[in-house]
């Protein structure tokens, strides 16, 4: 497990008014890592993801992508963001565009690809998530699971080095959750580096290479999922997972 970290998060902090949402979060992500963050709602997990790609500006701390500092990168942030694909809880597909147009828009406008090339790439990515046959559907005509797969394809189309998943299955029915998880597993098998925030405990433990428990803006426990049942470092994690699955 050697290699240079792709992403390095150092002492990230964020507060809204008096509420400290993130307190000195630090971790390193190596190529192919699957980092999974779990924890009660409102403990800053989503904020953490947004602070990584600077959709939310952190108050303090640094984020390094391939060794380059990106918190204070100004306009260059748009280049960095392309390398960090993001998937949202509510999909956030562009409602006025069909599935394939959703995927190719950034290719055309940000990557400045020509039309044929962008369309080819978009169709390839839709194929990858099993959505090629829905290419001409509008977001409102897709089920939640389908919409989420399209949004994954949209992020993948930028050829990101890391994928950030912000509760990708929380808005979905159980059957639909599965199809999105399938896609994520396939990506992981292909070696994609992932940071995932989720409430799916089973998925978290089977998917993660490293699992983090966050509470009140802090990482209180972390380690390899295989150690959860036995290790003394995972006391709180066992409680949390137990409580969660009982619900």
């Amino acid at each position: 497990m050697s290699g240079v970290p792709v992403l390095c998060v150092e002492n990230l902090s964020k507060q809204y008014g008096d509420l400290k949402v993130l307190k000195n979060i630090s971790f390193k992500v190596k190529k192919g890592d699957k980092m999974v963050f779990i924890g009660p709602s409102g403990t800053g997990k989503s904020t953490l993801l947004r602070c990584i790609n600077q959709l939310t500006k952190p108050d303090a701390g640094n984020v390094y992508l391939n060794g380059e500092e990106i918190v204070h990168s100004g306009h260059k942030i748009n280049e960095y963001r392309q390398k960090m694909g993001m998937v949202f809880q509510n999909f956030n597909l562009f409602d006025h565009l069909t599935a394939v147009r959703n995927v190719e828009l950034a290719l055309l406008k940000v990557k400045k690809m020509d039309k044929a090339e962008a369309r080819k790439k978009a169709m390839f990515e839709l194929e990858r998530v099993g959505m090629a046959d829905r290419a001409d559907y509008y977001p409102a005509q897709l089920s939640g699971g389908q919409a989420q797969r399209v949004s994954i394809a949209r992020a993948l189309a930028m050829d990101p080095e890391i994928m950030l998943f912000d509760e990708p299955t929380s808005a979905l029915d159980p059957e639909l959750k599965r199809e999105v998880m399938e896609v994520m597993r396939k990506l992981a098998e292909q070696g994609m580096t992932c940071i995932v925030v989720t409430h799916e405990m089973k998925f978290a433990t089977s998917f993660a290479s490293e699992i983090f428990l966050m509470e009140k803006g802090e990482v209180i426990e972390h380690g390899v999922p295989a150690d959860i049942p036995t290790s003394p470092d995972f006391k709180r994690m066992r409680e949390f997972m137990g409580a969660y699955t009982e619900e």
Binding site: R50, N53, L55, H75, N78, E79, Y80, R81, Q82, M84, G85, M86, F88, N90, F91, N92, L93, F94, D95, H96, L105, A106, K109, V110, S151, R154, A155, M158
Partner: peptide
């Protein structure tokens, strides 16, 4: 408009202006 539209556009590396031009104004 949902804030998610802007977030998604920015997460793909679009600039402020590209977001306004390609997402906000057409919608």
């Amino acid at each position: 408009l949902s804030e998610g539209q802007t977030l998604a556009a920015r997460s793909l590396g679009m600039t402020n202006w590209q977001t306004i031009k390609h997402i906000i104004i057409p919608q």
